[in-house]
């Protein structure tokens, strides 16, 4: 079985898996990293949203062979370390606004929100309602109002 190596939450790791296995299952079933959730494995619900090289992506729809040794994969578990704190400002905002209900979609929501804010910053602007409309992570509990408030607050605390 092929061995794949990449950086996961700050550590270089190796894992044996068939080439075509989607990264979500490599993370969850083989590596025991369960923060990214399974909701559809069709790149629709976005529950598994994580970061690759700082950008949001859905590991349910990426074969493990397409991950390069130099690629840095960050899941919700590794998010705080990217800012050298116990909690990322976006996670703090999520707590402040008591966003979660059942919580199933929230790791993906937070990862998507952080990437969306960074994307806006990279374009030299603050996050707008139009940006928030582009977030497509599904929350079946319907926490969207608080999600929007929290993303805006988290964006302020993320600094420039």
């Amino acid at each position: 079985m092929p061995t794949h190596t990449f950086k996961l939450n700050g550590k270089q790791i190796s894992v044996e898996a068939e080439d075509n296995v989607r990264l979500l299952w490599v993370l969850r079933d083989l590596l025991g990293v369960t923060g990214p959730k399974y909701g559809c494995a069709l790149e629709v619900c976005k529950s598994c949203t994580s970061h690759i090289n700082g950008k949001a992506f859905n590991p349910c729809s990426v074969q493990v062979k397409d991950i390069e040794p130099a690629d840095e994969v960050t899941t919700i578990e590794g998010l705080p370390a990217t800012v050298g704190k116990d909690l990322h400002p976006m996670q703090e905002a999520w707590l402040k606004y008591d966003v979660a209900q059942c919580g199933y979609c929230q790791p993906g929501q937070i990862m998507a929100a952080v990437a969306k804010v960074k994307q806006a910053r990279a374009e030299g602007r603050d996050i707008t309602d139009a940006d928030l409309d582009e977030l497509r992570n599904i929350c079946r509990c319907g926490t969207y109002s608080r999600i929007r408030e929290a993303v805006k607050a988290g964006a302020e605390d993320m600094g420039a």
């Binding site: 494995a41 069709l42 690759i52 950008k55 949001a56 590991p59 729809s61 990426v62 397409d66």
Partner: peptide, 13 residues
């Protein structure tokens, strides 16, 4: 159950 897509890296942001 449909097969999962493989184009996830084309939709990063």
């Amino acid at each position: 159950t449909p097969q999962s897509p493989t184009d996830g890296l084309d939709h990063t942001f």
